[in-house]
Amino acid sequence: MKYLTFEGMDFPVTFQIFGKTILAHPLFEAIGMFIGMRYYFYLKRKSKEKLPFNISISVLIGATAGALLGSKLIGNLENPFKLFESFDIAAIWSNNTIVGGLAFGLIGVELAKKIVGHKESTGDLIVFPLILAMIIGRIGCFLTGIYEETYGIPTTSIFGMNLGDNYLRHPVALYEIVFLILLWIVLKVIQKRNIYPSGFIFQIFMLSYFTFRVILDFIKPRLEIVGNLGTIQIVCICVIIYYIYKIKNTLPSQYKKYQS
């Protein structure tokens, strides 16, 4: 069922592909991943840092496996009571979140690097392709409205939009797109200074995005697990603590070396 909403837009936006009706969210998610990967391989060809094939493939496998597991695991643990009340494989497979994908993708990469004995950072090259993929994916989230759990709570602010249920809600997908564009600009400025150690851009990206998600999720429907925090926020806080510790212990000595 469709509702007439913001400036005549119907939610959810769907597309007819090979005779099947496809929601905007999975379609844009797939497009985002494809374009993001093409951009990554383009940057990789231009990069002066060349990783051996066995290290590259190990890191790629670790990141993919970790991201797939994490996105599903954290996506389903957003409402653990619902998960255990009715065990539905199809529903379990459809639940995912970028927060879980990023967090567990990181774990997968670190495990893969330990297995092959690689100690250098490998994350900077993926940052901008990842941001690009996320922006495209969030366009799909916005176009899906309230028909997947990527919408905001009702609001009386000037930003409120009718996303398909006749309530004015925070368009959190648009907020995230704006944040990611601004983060892209800031990270590009940092990158051009060329004085920070390898991996710093990725660390700042992760710290910034997970901090943003802790705040953003307060205006999204969520099940409070600990205090007034949802599952995603708890995961975000764990990642934030990890990166504060990591940056604090690696940046000073590296920065002094670049300054000397």
Score class of each variant (00 low, 15 high):
K50A: 02
R38P: 02
L51I: 03
M37S: 12
K20N: 10
L27T: 05
F15C: 09
Y39W: 14
P52Y: 02
F15S: 12
G36Y: 03
M33S: 12
K44M: 12
I31W: 03
L51F: 01
F28S: 10
R45I: 03
E29L: 12
F28D: 08
G36T: 03
L43S: 13
K50Y: 00
Y40H: 02
I17E: 02
F15R: 07
G19R: 13
F41A: 00
T21I: 08
K44F: 08
P52V: 10
F41P: 00
K48Y: 01
G32H: 05
K20T: 13
F53G: 09
R38V: 15
E29K: 10
I22A: 02
A30F: 14
A24H: 10
F34K: 02
F15M: 15
F53A: 15
I35V: 14
M37D: 09
I35W: 05
A24M: 07
I31T: 11
V13Q: 06
G32F: 06
K50L: 03
F18D: 14
I31M: 11
I31G: 04
A30M: 09
F15A: 13
M37W: 09
F41T: 00
P26S: 02
F15N: 12
T14C: 06
A30C: 14
T14K: 10
I35G: 03
F15D: 11
S47I: 06
P52F: 01
K48F: 00
Y39D: 04
G36D: 05
F18I: 15
F28Q: 09
L51R: 04
A24K: 06
F53D: 15
M33C: 12
I22W: 10
L43A: 10
V13A: 11
K20S: 07
T14G: 05
I17K: 01
Q16P: 05
F28N: 13
G19H: 11
A30R: 04
F28A: 06
Y39K: 02
E29M: 08
T21P: 05
M33R: 12
H25D: 08
E49H: 03
A24T: 08
Y39H: 11
A30H: 05
K46Q: 09
K48H: 04
L43K: 10
Y42G: 00
M37F: 15
G32M: 13
H25W: 13
M33P: 07
L43W: 08
H25M: 07
Q16G: 11
E49A: 01
R45Q: 07
L43I: 07
G36S: 14
G32R: 05
Q16S: 13
A24F: 13
F53S: 07
R38T: 07
K20Y: 15
Y39N: 03
E49L: 03
M33A: 12
Y39S: 04
G36P: 01
R45A: 08
F28Y: 13
P26Q: 01
G36R: 01
I35K: 02
L27E: 08
F18S: 09
V13T: 15
Q16C: 08
L51A: 04
F34H: 02
K44G: 14
R38H: 14
S47P: 14
L23Y: 05
K20M: 13
L23F: 05
L23N: 00
K46G: 05
Q16K: 11
P52T: 10
I17Q: 02
G36K: 01
F18C: 10
R45V: 05
Y39I: 10
L27P: 04
I22C: 01
G32D: 09
A30V: 12
L27G: 03
